[in-house]
Design a protein around this nucleic acid. Structure first.
Length: 747
DNA sequence: TTGTTTATTCTTTTT
DNA sequence: GAATAAACAA
């Protein structure tokens, strides 16, 4: 098998795999066999260089990629690769930290806080130091903190170079947040890497241990590494261990998460005697799709390493670009085409709908519902649901009793009479005594602080927790969660509500038990702590069942690394792609362009892009324009279909119906409410008409032409250079003009 | 203290 | 439109 795989490599791929002179950087364009090269390299190291699996450190971007590579390596060398250090930076660091936690003042069973835990914790810190939430929005504070962390900027140094009050408060928050995490024996995502790096910097013996341990370091998706990750690789390599980095600057789409595209562009400077390889032969897409991608990114992004993908695959079908009248029509048409394709024998799992934001999935789901199997990857995950987070909070507290965030979440869940006032009392007492809330509760001191009703609630929670602590010593993960549900009556209380929603929640909780059981079968000696860590470090893509035969719906970001025969890129509109929040910053716009590029290059055989002229956004219908990225592509690179004048009335009435149902107007009896309904309806219609009054060129707008004078636009067809405007001028003169040439002034 | 309704705010991407 | 916060009633 090994020889067969090596033989199937092309010339450059072979050179990269067999190179034996130190660090390497492989620029691997989309679909050029990146994973193949990585797995071949690992197989080569094991087979030809006789390394042990545990001497190889390989960082990937998702767990799914790691698993896939592990399997492929095992297949190639025909034996198990147990012990291979392969995973995301987060999970690899977590593995090291679990071993070395005590050197950093944590215990082995520290908790990893997810984003909602982070917000709760930060908010509690803000309360403590009197930071106003409207002035310091927790969410944006967290992103500031995160970017400091990803650049390895610690609170102490930041305090040293302060200049204004505002800065100081933010660093105080950062500092307070870090201390609170430590008190809770918890780390956030950034901490996993930050603390590993700090461990290596502080403790040279430990660093040497790992440096001697690893004989080869591989990093996938190198363009998406942040500064701390770069430092980790550099430190671990120590200038000696070869680093094999693979990446594509054209697919750098995570700068908002701290990724530095400079890492890949400056790789040769950072690692001595780097050998560079460029993979440019694409094995995935048709010539038409590649041409579409290449011309788009060539024209839009200047700062690139520069490479040109090419393919031997001719005879593909042209890329299609559709202009729809509305988001509703877009969803209907796209879904109908998919349904037809499936009935013509297409495999649903080879079809994908990709969009910029998760919110866009809804209309597509509605139109596929009951007509075609589909999966929505990402968005609100199963583990983010209230009921699941509740149960997990119990489990997290049991694993790490210092975890106050989890304790406060379950303090009154299910309701046991410990409201906001009681909770504040406990928190205040804990702060005063310098202990955790958990300690107060378990020791029984919490009860003494409270009024009789709340005190008995606290006592019953204490009892539950003590029982579970005891059970945890002997029970399996599955038994523990079952007993937990039993003692808290969680499911029973839900079922007593007798509402559809509560029933569904109860079902979800049962599903969690199933998930634990299933996991336990695969991880026989794993404890509940391992289960929790696995799900907190999983991404949406890891959770999806690859075997499911279903149409895939996901964001451009989530789609990175995947490929499908038939791809629909929807909502390719200005203000969505690029996002309105990126529009003013050239660097951000470039990243959005690369995001579009990532989307395009997911397609193997067929690519369809679409944009709508109107779209429901922020609770209203807004006029939309095609993405400026489409303008950059020569019209010869695709086939344009303008359907913006069809089905207008249909989408109109459907929207009004949606309005009626969403407001539940029919459920109101009173006359007054019915009047509201009428008003609402008029309002909706007004918005449609209102859109024409905006300073945009579309039907209804008054324009002035140098020669023909003032006229009213009847219709606008096509876009970019090919866009034509039909105008009825004063005196009944009707003209069809090329927008680009006829300098129209919008009145 | 708890559950419900109303008001307000904020709308990107995720390990 | 949705999620969250605030206000209110019980």
């Amino acid at each position: 098998m090994y020889n067969k795989i090596i033989d199937s490599l092309n010339k450059v791929q072979k050179e990269a795999v067999f190179y034996d002179g130190g660090s390497e950087l492989v620029f691997a364009g989309a679909g050029t066999g990146k994973t193949k090269v990585l797995t071949s390299k690992i197989a080569w190291l094991l087979k030809e260089k006789h390394l042990y699996p545990n001497q190889i450190f390989a960082a990937t971007f998702t767990k799914k990629a790691a698993n896939e590579m592990r399997e492929r390596v095992a297949l190639a060398i025909g034996q198990s690769v147990e012990g291979l250090w392969i995973g995301t930076f987060h999970s690899l660091c977590s593995k090291i930290l679990h071993i070395e936690a005590d050197k950093l003042g944590f215990t082995r069973n520290f908790t990893i806080y997810d984003s909602s835990d982070q917000i709760t914790l930060l908010k509690s810190v803000m309360k403590e130091i009197n930071a106003d939430e409207s002035r310091y929005p927790p969410k944006s504070m967290l992103s500031v903190i995160s970017s400091h962390k990803s650049r390895f900027e610690l609170p102490d140094e930041l305090f040293a170079k302060l200049n204004s009050y505002s800065d100081r408060k933010i660093i105080e928050l950062y500092d307070g947040y870090q201390n609170a995490l430590k008190r809770a024996n918890a780390m956030d995502y950034d901490d996993l890497m930050l603390y590993t790096l700090m461990l290596f910097e502080k403790n040279k013996e430990i660093l040497q241990k790992y440096q001697n341990f690893f004989k080869f370091i591989l990093v996938d998706e190198y363009q998406d590494t942040n500064h701390v990750q770069f430092l980790l690789v550099q430190t671990l390599s120590g200038g000696k261990t070869p680093v094999f980095a693979v990446g594509d600057d054209d697919q750098s789409i995570y700068s908002w998460r701290g990724a530095q595209i400079e890492n890949i562009l400056n790789f040769a400077k950072h690692f001595p005697n780097t050998k560079m390889f460029k993979l440019e032969q694409n094995y995935r897409s048709t010539e038409q799709i590649l041409n579409f991608a290449n011309t788009m990114i060539d024209a839009s992004v200047k700062k690139r390493s520069g490479k040109k993908l090419w393919t031997g695959t001719k005879n593909g079908s042209p890329v299609k670009v559709y202009n729809y009248s509305s988001d509703v029509q877009e969803a209907q048409r796209v879904c109908q085409e998919i349904i037809d394709a499936i009935s013509n024998g297409h495999n649903p799992s080879e079809i994908a709908i990709l969009y910029r934001t998760n919110a866009q999935s809804r209309l597509f789901e509605q139109n596929l519902q009951g007509k075609a199997p589909y999966v929505v990857v990402g968005g609100m995950s199963f583990y983010e649901r209230k009921e699941i987070k509740d149960i997990l909070a119990y489990l997290k507290f049991l694993v790490n009793p210092q975890d106050d965030i989890s304790l406060l979440r379950i303090l009154n869940v299910p309701a046991r009479g410990i409201g906001a006032t009681s909770q504040e009392k406990i928190v205040a007492a804990a702060n005063e005594k310098g202990v955790t809330c958990g300690e107060l509760l378990v020791s029984g001191q919490a009860q003494n602080l409270l009024t009789s009703k709340s005190a008995s609630g606290a006592a019953s929670l204490r009892k539950i927790i003590e029982n579970l602590f005891e059970l945890m010593k002997t029970a399996t993960a599955k038994e523990l969660i079952q007993q937990l549900l039993e003692e808290t009556n969680y499911i029973k209380i839900l079922l007593e509500e007798k509402s559809e929603e509560a029933n569904e929640r109860a079902e979800n909780v049962k599903e969690l038990v199933n998930a634990v059981s299933f996991w336990q079968m695969k991880n026989e000696d794993g404890g509940i702590a391992d289960f929790i860590e696995e799900i907190t470090l999983s991404s949406a893509i890891d959770e999806t069942d690859g075997a499911a035969e279903a149409v895939n719906l996901m964001t451009f970001h989530t789609a990175k690394g995947l490929e499908f025969d038939k791809v629909f890129l929807v909502g390719i509109e200005d203000d969505i792609l690029p996002s309105g929040l990126s529009r003013d910053d050239k660097q951000k716009v470039d990243e959005e362009c690369r995001l579009f590029y990532v989307g395009i290059t997911r397609a193997r055989k067929e690519l369809n892009c679409s944009f709508a002229s109107r779209r429901m956004r922020f609770g209203g219908i807004k006029p939309m324009n095609p993405s400026p990225f489409l303008d950059k592509i020569p019209t010869s690179a695709y086939k344009m279909f303008n359907l913006s004048n069809e089905y207008d009335n249909f989408s109109f009435s459907q929207r009004n119906n949606a309005e009626i149902y969403s407001k539940k107007v029919f459920s109101y009896e009173s006359k007054q409410k019915n009047d509201d309904f009428v008003e609402k309806r008029v309002y909706v219609a007004d918005e449609y008409i209102g859109s024409a009054n905006e300073k945009r060129l579309r039907a209804g707008v008054l324009v002035r032409h140098d020669k023909f004078g003032v006229g009213r636009v009847l219709s606008v067809n096509g876009f970019a250079d090919a866009q034509q405007t039909t105008i009825l001028f004063e005196g009944g003169v009707r003209k069809q003009l090329m927008t680009k040439i006829a300098k129209l002034e919008i009145l």
